[in-house]
């Protein structure tokens, strides 16, 4: 495997990691707010904050890691995306900032407030929408490049069916992933009440997820035929596997069995779809301006980054394992018996 392919695979994997952990977080915020206004918060909110409190900051790092990494490996992405994303990117930053800090204000601070929870819930749905703009732009057609001036065509983005289908998909999959995880977490906590509610959420958001996925396919065929054909001719099997995982996962949740396996299948569902999408997008990073092998940084830097990446993983994996062991796999903690 050459360096640029290795680089983009690593970054894509981190983006996938962010997709999963952030979805859990974003969806949980929405469910917590929903629980509060429907007066079911006593059932689910403790459970949610028991999971989120120790990990929200780590979730954030996955995101930072991705965007620092992509600028490092592929500096020209900074140029094109940087210019194009000033508005959607700034909106995402502002929402992330409100969300992160108000989460801390609410949780570590004084008392729980509905206003904070509203901000937390609402931003959780808006952030995926604003972040998904980056993926939409990468399909091409939303930038005008003249000489060394890049102009972002915001109107085209707003009028594009493709861009809206991506937004819809990002929101519903956030809710689906989150509900699937929290159902599993509630099950581990032996918390019947929470499990019942969260399982309903998972089942409720399961059909829209798959409908939205098809919508993205259909609109991609119009927007970027080249990408669409590559996806269905070369990587159809990945999307088929994704669909299969989705069906089994939904069934397991429906018959109330093996919630852990169901969540892993949901992760695999998104893994196949996300990597199938990514692989068929190549060799373009930003169609048609940024091509993988042309935009990679100089070789010395790429090698240095890969070395640091491997060393970093040696540090991260045991630490992440410890974090999960203490807050995810420790049954006593999950049940709320340990502080």
């Amino acid at each position: 495997m050459n360096l640029e392919l290795l680089g983009i695979t690593v970054l894509w994997t981190f983006l996938y990691g962010y997709l999963i952990v952030a979805s859990i977080d974003f969806g949980a915020g929405f469910f917590a707010y929903y629980g509060k206004i429907t007066k079911k918060d006593h059932l689910i909110n403790d459970l949610i904050s028991r999971y989120l409190s120790p990990v929200w900051e780590v979730t954030n790092v996955f995101f930072v890691f991705f965007f620092v990494g992509i600028v490092g490996f592929f500096p020209s992405t900074a140029y094109y995306f940087g210019t194009a994303l000033l508005i959607p990117g700034s909106i995402a930053i502002i929402l992330l900032a409100i969300r992160g800090s108000f989460y801390a204000f609410n949780n570590y601070g004084s008392r729980s407030s509905t206003a904070y929870l509203f901000l937390y819930g609402a931003t959780g749905l808006l952030i995926p929408a604003s972040l998904s703009t980056a993926l939409t732009i990468s399909e091409g057609g939303f930038l005008k490049v003249e000489g060394d001036k890049v102009t972002f065509l915001a109107k085209e983005l707003f009028a594009s069916p493709y861009s809206w289908s991506v937004v819809v998909l990002s929101i519903v999959s956030v809710l689906f992933i989150s509900a699937a995880f929290l159902t599993y977490y509630a099950d581990r906590a032996d918390d019947r009440g929470a499990r019942t509610i969260l399982r309903k959420f998972a089942l409720l958001w399961s059909p829209p997820t798959i409908v939205a996925s098809f919508l993205v396919f259909v609109s991609l065929r119009e927007h970027n035929p080249e990408h669409f054909h590559k996806a269905v001719s070369e990587y159809w099997w990945m999307f088929a596997l994704s669909l299969l995982c989705f069906i089994i996962a939904s069934c397991l949740i429906y018959i109330r069995r093996n919630f852990g396996a169901a969540f892993i299948l949901v992760m695999l569902q998104f893994f196949f779809a996300f990597f199938g999408y990514g692989a068929s997008h190549l060799p373009y990073i930003l169609y048609p301006h940024v091509v993988l092998h042309e935009s990679v940084t100089n070789e010395t830097m790429a090698v240095a980054l890969v070395i640091v990446f491997v060393l970093g993983l040696l540090l991260l994996i045991p630490s992440l394992y410890l974090l999960m062991k203490l807050f995810l796999f420790d049954a006593e903690y999950v049940k709320g018996k340990k502080q």
């Binding site: 900051e57 930072v64 890691f65 600028v71 500096p75 140029y79 940087g82 640091v308 970093g312």
Partner: peptide, 27 residues
């Protein structure tokens, strides 16, 4: 960033590792 990214990606990247490490253990 397009130009300097070629030169200073290494410390920028390492910074996120340090940040990651800190975030995990602070949690």
């Amino acid at each position: 960033m397009e130009q300097a990214g070629q030169l200073i990606a290494l410390p920028l990247f390492m910074e996120t590792f340090a940040f990651f490490f800190e975030a995990i253990f602070l949690g």
